[in-house]
Measured scan of single mutants.
Amino acid sequence: RADKQHVLDMLFSAFEKHQYYNLKDLVDITKQPVVYLKEILKEIGVQNVKGIHKNTWELKPEYR
């Protein structure tokens, strides 16, 4: 399990490339446990629960 700041850096870097990611792809990118990753994502992102981007994560507007 990596340092939180290191995980945040990896996530922000990923979100610079694409606006939406599913959790599986973010786990592959960060190599972090799902529960730990979700904890961090809830602080900086929102999970889309409907629409064409259903079940994906994106950054909260203040982090874009």
Rank of each mutant, 00 (worst) to 15 (best):
R1S: 11
R1V: 14
A2Y: 06
A2F: 07
A2I: 15
D3K: 09
K4D: 05
Q5H: 04
Q5S: 13
H6V: 15
V7N: 02
V7W: 02
L8V: 10
D9M: 08
M10D: 05
M10H: 04
L11G: 00
F12W: 09
S13D: 15
F15D: 00
F15G: 00
E16T: 07
E16S: 11
E16R: 13
K17R: 12
K17C: 05
K17N: 05
K17E: 10
H18C: 08
Y20D: 05
Y21H: 06
Y21K: 05
Y21G: 02
N22F: 11
N22H: 15
K24C: 08
K24G: 09
K24H: 09
L26T: 00
V27A: 14
V27R: 11
D28Q: 04
D28E: 15
I29W: 15
I29D: 02
T30K: 00
Q32D: 01
Q32C: 06
V34R: 13
V34N: 07
V34S: 14
V35I: 13
V35K: 15
V35R: 14
V35H: 05
Y36N: 05
Y36Q: 13
Y36K: 13
L37T: 03
K38F: 06
K38P: 00
E39F: 03
I40K: 03
I40V: 09
L41Q: 00
K42H: 07
K42D: 11
E43Y: 01
E43F: 03
E43L: 04
E43P: 02
E43Q: 10
I44T: 01
G45F: 00
G45H: 00
G45S: 10
V46E: 09
Q47Y: 11
N48G: 10
N48L: 06
K50M: 10
G51F: 03
I52Q: 14
H53C: 07
H53D: 08
H53E: 09
K54H: 12
N55V: 04
N55Q: 08
N55A: 09
T56P: 03
T56E: 15
T56N: 07
T56L: 11
W57Q: 02
W57C: 03
E58M: 14
L59K: 03
K60Y: 01
P61E: 15
P61T: 12
P61H: 08
P61W: 05
P61L: 05
P61Q: 10
Y63R: 07
